[in-house]
Amino acid sequence: MSKKTEEMNSYSEEKDELITRLKRIEGQVRGIQRMIDEEKYCVDVLTQVAAAKAALNKVGMTVLRNHTHGCVREAVSEGENGEEIIDELMSVISKFTN
């Protein structure tokens, strides 16, 4: 199975839910832009930024979980270089958590 196919399979079951969440986040970000344009109270803007950030983190965790249980598990079971796979996973986790 090609890497691109593996990546698509890792979250295909939740694809519709992820797309819905991302569209909702997109709307939140547009709302934040509008709030700033309208010079809304800073605390209200920050509250919305925190909500959008939390929603985006949830999407990221879903993709990361599916990657780990799908792509990583499959690569290890197929006997690919385990150290390389773990290094790649740790790199992704590091990028995601910073």
Results as ranks from 00 to 15, higher is better:
residue 1 M to F: 14
residue 1 M to Q: 10
residue 3 K to Q: 15
residue 5 T to L: 13
residue 5 T to R: 09
residue 6 E to S: 12
residue 7 E to R: 02
residue 7 E to V: 09
residue 8 M to T: 10
residue 9 N to L: 15
residue 11 Y to N: 05
residue 11 Y to C: 06
residue 14 E to Q: 14
residue 14 E to T: 08
residue 14 E to V: 10
residue 16 D to W: 06
residue 16 D to A: 12
residue 17 E to M: 11
residue 17 E to V: 07
residue 17 E to W: 09
residue 17 E to D: 13
residue 18 L to A: 11
residue 19 I to Y: 01
residue 21 R to E: 07
residue 22 L to E: 02
residue 23 K to Y: 06
residue 24 R to W: 01
residue 24 R to N: 10
residue 25 I to K: 02
residue 26 E to H: 01
residue 26 E to N: 06
residue 26 E to Y: 04
residue 26 E to T: 07
residue 30 R to A: 12
residue 30 R to C: 08
residue 31 G to A: 04
residue 32 I to H: 11
residue 33 Q to H: 15
residue 33 Q to C: 15
residue 34 R to M: 15
residue 34 R to P: 07
residue 35 M to Y: 07
residue 36 I to F: 01
residue 39 E to G: 08
residue 40 K to Q: 13
residue 40 K to G: 04
residue 40 K to F: 02
residue 40 K to L: 06
residue 41 Y to G: 12
residue 41 Y to L: 11
residue 42 C to H: 08
residue 43 V to K: 14
residue 46 L to S: 06
residue 46 L to H: 07
residue 46 L to V: 06
residue 46 L to K: 01
residue 47 T to W: 03
residue 48 Q to D: 09
residue 48 Q to N: 12
residue 48 Q to E: 11
residue 48 Q to A: 08
residue 49 V to N: 00
residue 49 V to C: 02
residue 50 A to G: 03
residue 53 K to T: 03
residue 55 A to C: 09
residue 55 A to W: 01
residue 60 G to T: 05
residue 61 M to V: 06
residue 61 M to L: 11
residue 62 T to M: 06
residue 63 V to G: 01
residue 64 L to M: 10
residue 65 R to I: 10
residue 65 R to W: 13
residue 66 N to G: 14
residue 69 H to W: 05
residue 70 G to L: 04
residue 70 G to I: 01
residue 71 C to D: 01
residue 72 V to E: 00
residue 72 V to K: 00
residue 73 R to N: 10
residue 74 E to G: 09
residue 75 A to K: 00
residue 76 V to E: 05
residue 76 V to N: 09
residue 77 S to T: 13
residue 78 E to I: 05
residue 79 G to A: 10
residue 79 G to P: 05
residue 80 E to G: 05
residue 80 E to R: 10
residue 80 E to D: 13
residue 81 N to Q: 15
residue 82 G to E: 15
residue 82 G to R: 15
residue 82 G to Q: 14
residue 82 G to D: 10
residue 83 E to Y: 13
residue 83 E to I: 11
residue 84 E to C: 09
residue 85 I to V: 14
residue 85 I to P: 02
residue 85 I to F: 06
residue 86 I to P: 04
residue 87 D to P: 03
residue 92 V to Y: 02
residue 95 K to W: 12
residue 96 F to G: 10
residue 98 N to I: 12
residue 98 N to R: 13
